[in-house]
Design a protein around this nucleic acid. Structure first.
Length: 426
RNA sequence: GUGGGCGUAGCUCAGCGGUAGAGCCCCUGACUGUGGAUCAGGUGGUCGUCGGUUCAAAUCCGAUCGCCCACCCCA
């Protein structure tokens, strides 16, 4: 066993039983985004390394140590660690601002070279959205409502929305200076991690999990007390809007996103179950200067992303593997395999999910397989049925058995009416 | 990158110095007129890997790899 090939560290197979749950969630996402007027974008998985360095930030852990990078110099390319940078690049490259395509969503794999953890892998999947060209706080509101809808679509019913504002280039530098001054006064009582972050990402220090440090921070200056008038008005409008829409939320002045490009509104959705200590399942915020910084027009932006593995874990969707499903399983006696397959194909052409046993087993063996296939009905065709031009149909859930038509179209119609009559999905 | 826990059959696990086990799953048959039940039989493991101790190692020791959990960071 030790010599068999296996998935690389941090990579995993998504197997039958789980893929069905993924498909269901993905389908719900498609419907939700469409309802909000968002259109899907599918950028490539690989981009110039420089794109991520510029957008995510040189000092971040993602760029510093978590990227899968290949090639040298100008040829250097990187598997995307997140999707916002790619979407911005595509937006600029194709002039989407002039095509009225400012509301975009995506779903797909991302890669980060970090130590795997619960629901966190080196290849993981993100679903997310970006809005370009909309500066109003009402856009933040709408994005938050959509975020909660997507989280609920993953089966999470205990989601908590947490919002904050981290100011912009007009007010954050001054706040940052005051905060650093404060932190330096208490630096001798800070842990190693916090002392390091004091220089790399001082806003983040306040988010320390260390209780003794938290006690020190009671006196620390708060970003929400230091916002400029424009940021203050924006933040108030978002909070008022959430209240007006009846969306419960919490404020957390320590909620600082790790990526450099955020301004003003930042937010997170947390789940209380299933993920252990790290309970954020979705995060995002406003990034009004990013498109311009990447060489594009001066359009504001806002977006969020969620890790699908973690969403499904927190929603409990994966607790039970999905069962195999078929509408019918064809069982024959005295028919050659091609003859049986011809009937199966006719039923498939009618739109049914149909299975059969190519293995030439007896009636008992075929019925055993019918049961295991997850089929709703067995369609039996033997000498008696052939003589009468009928079939025998057995409801595999109830055991009830009755005479059915011999014609594939009529069989399909009968099966379909039975299934929809129960309100069961196929 | 750091700390802790764990690696025995496809899955869940027992065995903890003396010839590798159970349950479930899977395969075959009883079954050419009926599946989910039952019965009979069967496939599948150099006990993660390498090295050490020992007459003898799945079992004790070391290293290594992998998985899990937590930290850092983030979704």
């Amino acid at each position: 066993m030790g010599r068999r090939y296996r998935t690389l560290r941090g990579f995993r197979d998504i197997l039958p039983g789980e893929t069905e749950h993924w498909q269901a969630f993905e389908q719900r996402c498609r419907e939700l985004f469409a309802r909000y007027g968002f259109r899907e974008i599918r950028p490539p998985l690989v981009e110039p390394t420089e794109l991520f360095v510029r957008s995510v930030g040189e000092q971040t852990d993602i760029v510093g140590k978590e990227m899968f990078t290949f090639g040298e110099g100008d040829e250097s390319m990187t598997l995307r660690p997140e999707v916002t940078a790619s979407v911005c690049r595509a937006y600029i490259e194709h002039g989407l601002d002039r095509r009225g395509a400012g509301r975009l969503w995506y779903l797909g794999p991302c890669f980060r070279r970090e130590r795997p953890q619960k629901g966190r892998y080196r290849q993981f999947h993100q679903v997310g959205m970006e809005v370009f060209g909309e500066r109003e706080p009402a856009t933040d509101l709408e994005a938050l409502a959509l975020a909660l809808d997507v989280v609920r679509a993953a089966g999470i019913d205990d989601a908590r929305l947490v919002v904050n504002s981290i100011g912009d280039e007009a007010c954050r530098p001054a706040y940052r200076a005051r905060l650093v001054a404060f932190l330096e006064q208490v630096a001798d009582r800070l842990g190693e991690d916090s002392r390091r972050r004091l220089h790399t990402n001082p806003l983040r220090v306040l988010d320390s999990k260390d209780e003794q440090e938290q006690a020190l921070f009671a006196e620390a200056p708060r970003i929400t007390d230091a916002l400029c008038d424009a940021c203050r008005a924006h933040h108030d409008a978002v909070r008022d809007g959430l209240a007006r829409l009846g969306i419960p939320y919490e404020e957390d002045p320590r909620l600082v996103r790790g990526l450099d490009y955020y301004v003003r509104t930042t937010f997170e959705v947390r789940a209380t179950r299933g993920l252990g200590a790290q309970n954020a399942v979705l995060g995002g915020g406003r990034y009004d200067g990013l498109v311009r910084a990447l060489g594009g027009p001066d359009v504001p932006g806002l977006g969020w992303a969620a890790g699908i593995e973690r969403l499904l874990l927190a929603g409990g969707v994966l607790d039970e593997p999905a069962a195999a499903r078929l509408d019918v399983y064809v069982v024959t006696l005295g028919a050659s395999p091609p003859e049986t397959l011809a009937l199966v194909q006719a039923l498939r052409a009618e739109g049914l999910a149909a299975g059969w046993d190519p293995g030439g087993h007896g009636l008992g063996g075929q019925m055993k397989r019918a049961g295991r296939s997850g089929a709703r009905f067995a369609v039996l065709l033997g000498d008696d049925e052939r003589a009468r031009g009928t079939s025998t149909i057995k409801d595999l859930a109830s055991g009830e058995q009755f005479e059915g038509p011999g014609d594939p179209g009529a069989i399909a119609a009968l099966v379909r009416s039975r299934i929809s009559g129960e309100g069961a999905a196929t």
